[in-house]
Protein backbone atom coordinates (compact mmCIF):
# COMPACT_ATOMS: atom_id res chain seq x y z
CA UNK A 1 0.00 0.00 0.00
CA UNK A 2 1.52 3.31 -0.96
CA UNK A 3 1.31 6.32 1.30
CA UNK A 4 -0.83 8.26 -1.13
CA UNK A 5 -3.53 5.63 -1.27
CA UNK A 6 -3.69 5.39 2.53
CA UNK A 7 -4.32 9.15 2.59
CA UNK A 8 -7.06 8.71 0.06
CA UNK A 9 -8.82 6.38 2.48
CA UNK A 10 -8.52 8.81 5.42
CA UNK A 11 -10.85 11.59 6.52
CA UNK A 12 -9.36 13.93 3.91
CA UNK A 13 -10.11 11.49 1.15
CA UNK A 14 -12.65 13.81 -0.46
CA UNK A 15 -9.78 16.19 -1.40
CA UNK A 16 -8.32 13.63 -3.77
CA UNK A 17 -11.63 13.17 -5.53
CA UNK A 18 -11.70 16.83 -6.56
CA UNK A 19 -10.49 17.64 -10.07
CA UNK A 20 -6.93 18.89 -10.17
CA UNK A 21 -7.99 22.34 -11.44
CA UNK A 22 -10.34 22.74 -8.48
CA UNK A 23 -7.61 21.69 -6.08
CA UNK A 24 -5.37 24.36 -7.55
CA UNK A 25 -8.10 27.01 -7.24
CA UNK A 26 -8.79 26.14 -3.61
CA UNK A 27 -5.10 26.20 -2.78
CA UNK A 28 -4.83 29.58 -4.44
CA UNK A 29 -7.76 31.01 -2.47
CA UNK A 30 -6.38 29.67 0.81
CA UNK A 31 -2.97 31.19 0.10
CA UNK A 32 -4.57 34.54 -0.71
CA UNK A 33 -6.58 34.49 2.52
CA UNK A 34 -3.36 33.82 4.45
CA UNK A 35 -1.66 36.66 2.61
CA UNK A 36 -4.56 38.98 3.39
CA UNK A 37 -4.38 38.19 7.11
CA UNK A 38 -0.64 38.90 7.16
CA UNK A 39 -1.16 42.10 5.20
CA UNK A 40 -3.78 43.32 7.65
CA UNK A 41 -1.41 42.59 10.52
CA UNK A 42 1.27 44.69 8.83
CA UNK A 43 -0.80 47.44 7.28
CA UNK A 44 -3.44 48.06 9.93
CA UNK A 45 -1.04 49.70 12.41
CA UNK A 46 0.15 51.97 9.63
CA UNK A 47 -3.41 52.83 8.72
CA UNK A 48 -4.22 53.39 12.39
CA UNK A 49 -1.26 55.72 12.67
CA UNK A 50 -2.42 57.83 9.76
CA UNK A 51 -6.07 57.73 10.86
CA UNK A 52 -5.26 58.71 14.43
CA UNK A 53 -3.20 61.65 13.22
CA UNK A 54 -6.28 62.99 11.42
CA UNK A 55 -8.79 62.67 14.31
CA UNK A 56 -9.83 65.60 16.48
CA UNK A 57 -8.24 65.07 19.86
CA UNK A 58 -11.61 64.67 21.63
CA UNK A 59 -12.68 61.95 19.18
CA UNK A 60 -9.63 59.93 20.11
CA UNK A 61 -11.09 58.79 23.38
CA UNK A 62 -14.72 58.12 22.40
CA UNK A 63 -15.89 54.56 22.68
CA UNK A 64 -16.39 52.74 20.41
CA UNK A 65 -13.75 54.53 18.44
CA UNK A 66 -14.69 55.12 14.78
CA UNK A 67 -12.54 53.39 12.19
CA UNK A 68 -12.51 56.36 9.84
CA UNK A 69 -12.08 60.01 10.83
CA UNK A 70 -15.45 61.48 9.77
CA UNK A 71 -14.10 65.01 9.87
CA UNK A 72 -10.32 64.83 9.17
CA UNK A 73 -8.22 67.64 10.57
CA UNK A 74 -4.62 68.67 10.24
CA UNK A 75 -4.58 70.39 13.60
CA UNK A 76 -2.22 67.80 15.05
CA UNK A 77 0.21 68.29 12.17
CA UNK A 78 0.14 72.01 12.78
CA UNK A 79 0.83 71.42 16.45
CA UNK A 80 3.69 69.09 15.64
CA UNK A 81 5.28 71.54 13.25
CA UNK A 82 5.30 74.16 15.98
CA UNK A 83 7.63 72.03 18.09
CA UNK A 84 11.25 71.32 17.21
CA UNK A 85 10.14 68.63 14.77
CA UNK A 86 11.38 70.55 11.74
CA UNK A 87 14.82 70.80 13.29
CA UNK A 88 14.79 67.11 14.16
CA UNK A 89 13.63 66.27 10.68
CA UNK A 90 16.49 68.23 9.16
CA UNK A 91 18.92 66.52 11.52
CA UNK A 92 17.60 63.09 10.57
CA UNK A 93 17.91 63.83 6.87
CA UNK A 94 21.45 65.15 7.32
CA UNK A 95 22.51 62.25 9.51
CA UNK A 96 20.96 59.66 7.19
CA UNK A 97 22.52 61.22 4.11
CA UNK A 98 25.88 61.29 5.84
CA UNK A 99 25.63 57.68 6.92
CA UNK A 100 24.47 56.51 3.51
CA UNK A 101 27.29 58.38 1.77
CA UNK A 102 29.96 57.29 4.17
CA UNK A 103 28.82 53.66 4.28
CA UNK A 104 28.45 53.33 0.52
CA UNK A 105 31.81 54.92 -0.19
CA UNK A 106 33.71 52.98 2.45
CA UNK A 107 31.98 49.69 1.67
CA UNK A 108 32.59 50.05 -2.07
CA UNK A 109 36.26 50.88 -1.72
CA UNK A 110 36.76 48.29 1.00
CA UNK A 111 34.83 45.59 -0.83
CA UNK A 112 36.85 46.23 -3.97
CA UNK A 113 40.06 46.02 -2.02
CA UNK A 114 39.05 42.78 -0.37
CA UNK A 115 37.96 41.25 -3.65
CA UNK A 116 40.85 42.39 -5.83
CA UNK A 117 43.96 43.20 -3.86
CA UNK A 118 46.37 40.65 -2.53
CA UNK A 119 45.98 41.15 1.21
CA UNK A 120 47.17 38.39 3.53
CA UNK A 121 44.32 36.63 5.34
CA UNK A 122 41.77 38.81 3.57
CA UNK A 123 39.19 36.04 3.45
CA UNK A 124 39.35 35.48 7.17
CA UNK A 125 39.20 39.23 7.68
CA UNK A 126 36.20 39.64 5.41
CA UNK A 127 34.31 36.94 7.26
CA UNK A 128 35.20 38.25 10.69
CA UNK A 129 33.89 41.68 9.67
CA UNK A 130 30.38 40.27 9.72
CA UNK A 131 30.90 39.58 13.40
CA UNK A 132 31.00 43.34 13.97
CA UNK A 133 27.42 43.50 12.77
CA UNK A 134 26.34 41.14 15.55
CA UNK A 135 27.08 43.62 18.34
CA UNK A 136 23.91 45.20 19.72
CA UNK A 137 24.15 48.99 19.37
CA UNK A 138 23.81 49.47 23.11
CA UNK A 139 27.03 47.52 23.62
CA UNK A 140 28.86 49.89 21.32
CA UNK A 141 27.29 53.11 22.48
CA UNK A 142 28.72 53.32 26.00
CA UNK A 143 32.37 52.96 24.90
CA UNK A 144 31.56 55.27 22.01
CA UNK A 145 30.18 57.86 24.42
CA UNK A 146 33.48 57.80 26.29
CA UNK A 147 35.53 58.07 23.11
CA UNK A 148 33.36 60.68 21.49
CA UNK A 149 33.44 62.82 24.63
CA UNK A 150 37.23 62.79 24.47
CA UNK A 151 37.10 63.78 20.82
CA UNK A 152 34.48 66.45 21.43
CA UNK A 153 32.00 64.75 19.12
CA UNK A 154 29.12 64.50 21.58
CA UNK A 155 26.04 66.37 20.40
CA UNK A 156 27.38 66.78 16.92
CA UNK A 157 25.95 65.44 13.69
CA UNK A 158 29.34 64.32 12.28
CA UNK A 159 29.82 62.43 15.52
CA UNK A 160 26.56 60.54 15.21
CA UNK A 161 27.27 59.84 11.52
CA UNK A 162 30.59 58.24 12.42
CA UNK A 163 29.10 56.27 15.29
CA UNK A 164 26.13 54.93 13.37
CA UNK A 165 28.31 54.02 10.38
CA UNK A 166 30.10 51.60 12.66
CA UNK A 167 26.92 49.56 12.75
CA UNK A 168 26.08 49.78 9.05
CA UNK A 169 29.53 49.27 7.61
CA UNK A 170 30.34 45.63 8.50
CA UNK A 171 27.43 44.09 6.64
CA UNK A 172 27.77 46.57 3.77
CA UNK A 173 31.45 45.83 3.40
CA UNK A 174 30.75 42.13 3.34
CA UNK A 175 28.00 42.62 0.75
CA UNK A 176 30.25 44.67 -1.53
CA UNK A 177 33.05 42.13 -1.15
CA UNK A 178 30.64 39.45 -2.33
CA UNK A 179 29.39 41.70 -5.10
CA UNK A 180 32.77 42.54 -6.55
CA UNK A 181 33.55 38.85 -6.72
CA UNK A 182 30.73 38.50 -9.24
CA UNK A 183 32.23 41.21 -11.50
CA UNK A 184 34.66 39.49 -13.90
CA UNK A 185 38.19 40.70 -13.27
CA UNK A 186 39.05 40.37 -16.95
CA UNK A 187 36.94 43.49 -17.65
CA UNK A 188 39.28 45.59 -15.54
CA UNK A 189 42.33 43.77 -16.86
CA UNK A 190 41.25 44.53 -20.37
CA UNK A 191 40.84 48.21 -19.45
CA UNK A 192 44.28 48.22 -17.84
CA UNK A 193 46.02 46.66 -20.83
CA UNK A 194 44.06 49.11 -22.95
CA UNK A 195 45.75 51.98 -21.18
CA UNK A 196 43.79 52.92 -18.08
CA UNK A 197 45.30 52.96 -14.62
CA UNK A 198 44.00 50.60 -11.98
CA UNK A 199 41.95 53.35 -10.35
CA UNK A 200 40.55 54.45 -13.70
CA UNK A 201 39.57 50.86 -14.47
CA UNK A 202 37.87 50.70 -11.07
CA UNK A 203 35.90 53.88 -11.70
CA UNK A 204 35.05 53.27 -15.35
CA UNK A 205 34.44 49.53 -15.37
CA UNK A 206 34.09 47.99 -11.91
CA UNK A 207 31.94 50.72 -10.35
CA UNK A 208 29.17 50.75 -12.98
CA UNK A 209 29.01 46.97 -12.74
CA UNK A 210 28.77 47.17 -8.95
CA UNK A 211 25.95 49.73 -9.00
CA UNK A 212 23.19 47.35 -7.88
CA UNK A 213 25.33 46.36 -4.93
CA UNK A 214 25.95 49.98 -4.04
CA UNK A 215 22.25 50.75 -4.19
CA UNK A 216 21.51 47.79 -1.95
CA UNK A 217 24.08 49.08 0.50
CA UNK A 218 22.58 52.58 0.31
CA UNK A 219 19.09 51.30 1.07
CA UNK A 220 20.30 49.08 3.86
CA UNK A 221 22.27 51.84 5.54
CA UNK A 222 19.42 54.32 5.05
CA UNK A 223 16.99 51.99 6.78
CA UNK A 224 19.35 51.62 9.74
CA UNK A 225 20.21 55.32 9.83
CA UNK A 226 16.63 56.57 9.57
CA UNK A 227 15.37 54.38 12.38
CA UNK A 228 18.45 54.59 14.61
CA UNK A 229 17.54 55.20 18.22
CA UNK A 230 19.96 53.60 20.67
CA UNK A 231 23.19 55.28 19.66
CA UNK A 232 21.63 58.74 19.08
CA UNK A 233 19.88 58.54 22.45
CA UNK A 234 23.25 58.22 24.16
CA UNK A 235 25.37 60.49 21.99
CA UNK A 236 22.85 63.29 21.47
CA UNK A 237 21.79 64.98 24.69
CA UNK A 238 20.91 68.43 23.41
CA UNK A 239 17.37 68.50 21.99
CA UNK A 240 18.41 70.83 19.15
CA UNK A 241 20.64 68.03 17.84
CA UNK A 242 18.05 65.30 18.21
CA UNK A 243 16.97 63.08 15.40
CA UNK A 244 13.27 62.31 14.84
CA UNK A 245 13.31 59.00 16.70
CA UNK A 246 14.38 60.79 19.87
CA UNK A 247 11.82 63.52 19.27
CA UNK A 248 9.03 60.99 18.91
CA UNK A 249 9.98 59.41 22.20
CA UNK A 250 9.85 62.81 23.85
CA UNK A 251 6.14 63.19 23.12
CA UNK A 252 5.36 60.40 25.58
CA UNK A 253 7.58 61.79 28.27
CA UNK A 254 5.26 64.73 28.86
CA UNK A 255 2.58 64.45 31.51
CA UNK A 256 0.01 63.24 29.07
CA UNK A 257 0.65 61.09 26.04
CA UNK A 258 -0.02 63.25 22.96
CA UNK A 259 -1.31 60.46 20.74
CA UNK A 260 -2.41 62.76 17.95
CA UNK A 261 0.94 64.49 17.72
CA UNK A 262 2.88 61.25 18.03
CA UNK A 263 0.93 59.79 15.17
CA UNK A 264 1.24 62.91 13.03
CA UNK A 265 5.01 63.01 13.60
CA UNK A 266 5.24 59.28 12.95
CA UNK A 267 3.44 59.69 9.66
CA UNK A 268 5.84 62.40 8.61
CA UNK A 269 8.67 60.15 9.77
CA UNK A 270 7.57 57.14 7.75
CA UNK A 271 6.81 58.89 4.46
CA UNK A 272 10.38 59.34 3.13
CA UNK A 273 11.25 55.72 3.92
CA UNK A 274 8.22 54.62 1.99
CA UNK A 275 9.18 56.51 -1.15
CA UNK A 276 12.86 55.62 -0.82
CA UNK A 277 12.05 51.94 -0.62
CA UNK A 278 9.33 52.02 -3.23
CA UNK A 279 11.64 53.30 -5.94
CA UNK A 280 14.76 51.39 -5.01
CA UNK A 281 13.41 48.02 -3.93
CA UNK A 282 14.13 46.30 -7.23
CA UNK A 283 17.81 47.12 -6.79
CA UNK A 284 18.00 45.70 -3.31
CA UNK A 285 16.80 42.35 -4.60
CA UNK A 286 19.39 42.48 -7.36
CA UNK A 287 22.03 43.31 -4.81
CA UNK A 288 21.09 40.54 -2.47
CA UNK A 289 20.93 38.04 -5.29
CA UNK A 290 24.50 38.86 -6.20
CA UNK A 291 25.48 38.45 -2.58
CA UNK A 292 23.97 34.96 -2.68
CA UNK A 293 21.95 35.47 0.47
Amino acid sequence: MSIASSWEDGPLGFWYELPYQTQKKIKNVLLNVLLAIVLVLILFPIYWMIATSLFHSNDLFTLPMPLFPSDPTFVEYRAVLETEVVQWYTNTVLVSAGIVLLTTTAATLGGYGLARLDIPYKKTFARVILFGYMFPPILLSIPMFIFWRQLGLINSLPGIILAQTATTLPFSLWLMWQFFQTVPYSLEESAMVGGSSRFRAFVDVALPMAKPGMIAVAIFSFAIAWGAYTIPSILLTDSSKWVLTLGLASFTEAESVLWGQIMAASTLFVLPTFFFMYYLQKYILEGFRAGRI
Binding site: S186, E189, S190, M192, V193, G194, G195, S196, S197, R198
Partner: peptide, 12 residues
Protein backbone atom coordinates in the same frame (compact mmCIF):
# COMPACT_ATOMS: atom_id res chain seq x y z
CA UNK B 1 52.44 48.83 -15.28
CA UNK B 2 50.16 47.16 -17.84
CA UNK B 3 48.68 50.48 -18.94
CA UNK B 4 52.12 51.88 -19.77
CA UNK B 5 53.15 49.01 -22.02
CA UNK B 6 51.09 50.04 -25.01
CA UNK B 7 49.86 46.54 -25.78
CA UNK B 8 46.48 45.25 -26.85
CA UNK B 9 44.96 42.11 -25.43
CA UNK B 10 41.97 39.97 -26.27
CA UNK B 11 40.56 37.83 -23.48
CA UNK B 12 38.92 34.45 -23.53
Amino acid sequence: APNKRGLAMMFQ
